[in-house]
């Protein structure tokens, strides 16, 4: 696979490490959310046949975490974003 890195352009997927569902960005606040919320966050995932937003880490590159929108059926990649931008857009900050 080839991932079009938003900063570095097309890169071979071998340079990346895959983590999984991009919902891992949505970590609850540990001082307010309880075990239930963290259980969902840590363990529950959708498993779509189709479009999937997922986290990839450019370990053999610039160390960016990316959110890659990939079709799990065709492996077509339709969007690649910096995870930091996605996190900020979701309202995450400090």
């Amino acid at each position: 696979m080839i991932i079009h890195h938003p900063i570095l352009g097309p890169r071979d997927a071998q340079e990346f490490v895959y983590l999984g569902d991009a919902t891992l960005i949505d970590r609850p606040d540990g001082m307010n959310a309880g075990t239930e919320a963290f259980h969902d966050y840590a363990y529950n995932r959708d498993n779509p046949a189709g479009e999937h937003r997922e986290l990839w880490y450019h370990e053999q590159g610039d160390r960016s975490w990316l959110v890659v929108t990939r079709n799990t059926v065709t492996h077509e990649i339709t969007k690649v974003e910096l995870a930091r931008d996605v996190a900020r857009a979701k309202g995450r900050s400090k």
């Binding site: 891992l24 960005i25 986290l55 880490y57 995450r92 900050s93």
Partner: peptide
């Protein structure tokens, strides 16, 4: 790096 970029991007 995951924590820094994905969880607390403005630290």
């Amino acid at each position: 790096e995951f924590c820094r970029q994905c969880l607390w991007p403005d630290l």
